[in-house]
């Protein structure tokens, strides 16, 4: 029982980061129907920025905003250079474009930095510090992650429900053409979605990089997969589903790791992928299905 509770809390911490990533993927999918395989590159780029700043003696208090700003700017630049040119293209083109962006970004770091791992110092409190809740040992880091994630989700919800931009975004996600007829500017709403997606990836990136303490040219693959898969688990196009999907993915990973016998524990990731493939086979629309029936 104690072990299960412990696992649940660990899973929530992990799932929080996935939820932020998935929400970023879902926001962009909503307005552009683009499943962004390049979402993880936002973390790759901010990772190198963090590495540069820390080796130049910046404190983490400055690195945190730097990571977020870099993620937002990267998201906007990628939209400008690549995705804005394939708006409205077929799903095939959209998928491969984002795949291409992923490869170009990681190849640029491969070319101009190096293939080797770049390590940087993690803040001390992310590794050692824990506090006790009855019999449970809770990491301070997980606590901070969960609290910040909840605040971010509340903030995002307010932004979407209470502002004109949020209304435009939701309208565009429901029906882009009608939204445009009602005066929603497509440039504004799409760029706004990418900025929001970058902001969420930036916050997730802070935690991701604090935990990893390193970056490599291909560091984006892992967060990209987590974000994309979580968004799909929840049901593409549904923001609430994406958040749920993130938490579900985090819990599934932690629970599988503790249940699998030691000899095949290394296969946790493999099992998670297989489970997700099964989920799509039996429920391709995800947990929260969004009706997208085609009119004939």
């Amino acid at each position: 029982m104690v072990e299960l509770a412990q696992n649940l809390i660990d899973g929530l911490g992990r799932g929080s980061i996935y939820a932020l990533l998935a929400l970023g993927v879902a926001v962009v999918f909503g307005v552009m129907h683009l499943l962004n395989f390049a979402h993880g590159e936002l973390i790759t780029v901010s990772g190198y920025a963090a590495f540069w700043a820390i080796t130049n003696g910046w404190s983490w208090w400055l690195v945190v905003p730097l990571i977020i700003v870099v993620a937002v700017l990267t998201s906007l630049v990628i939209e400008r250079l690549a995705f804005s040119r394939v708006r409205g293209a077929s799903q095939f083109t959209l998928l491969l474009t984002s795949f291409g962006v992923h490869f170009v970004v990681s190849a640029i770091f491969l070319l101009y930095v190096s293939a080797s791992v770049k390590n940087f110092a993690r803040p001390a409190w992310t590794t050692q510090s824990t506090w006790a809740l009855g019999p449970l040992q809770i990491e301070t880091f997980d606590t901070v992650v969960i609290v910040v994630t909840i605040l971010t989700l509340i903030g995002t919800n307010l932004l979407l429900q209470r502002t004109m931009f949020g209304l435009a975004l939701r309208a565009a996600a429901a029906d882009f053409d009608t939204a445009r007829l009602m005066g929603v500017r497509s440039d504004t709403v799409i760029r706004g979605a990418f900025a929001l997606s970058g902001l969420l990836a930036g916050i997730a990136g802070v935690f991701w990089l604090m935990r990893a303490g390193s970056t490599t040219p291909s560091a984006g693959i892992d967060p990209m997969l987590k974000g994309v898969l979580a968004a799909l688990i929840g049901g593409l196009g549904s923001l609430r589903g994406a958040v749920l999907g993130g938490f579900a993915l985090g819990l599934a990973e932690v629970l599988l790791r503790s249940w699998l016998p030691g000899s095949i524990a290394g296969l946790t990731e493999g099992f998670v992928f297989a489970l997700i493939a099964l989920l799509f086979i039996f429920r391709p629309q995800g947990f929260v299905s969004v009706a997208h029936a085609e009119r004939v």
Binding site: F273, A277, I281
Partner: peptide, 28 residues
Amino acid sequence: RSGAASGAVAATVITLALLFVTHEVARN
């Protein structure tokens, strides 16, 4: 079963999962 059709996202993700599953099994 997943309703693969031209440009279906679910089908693409299943194939991507297959790539990762084979890779993970091969490594581990």
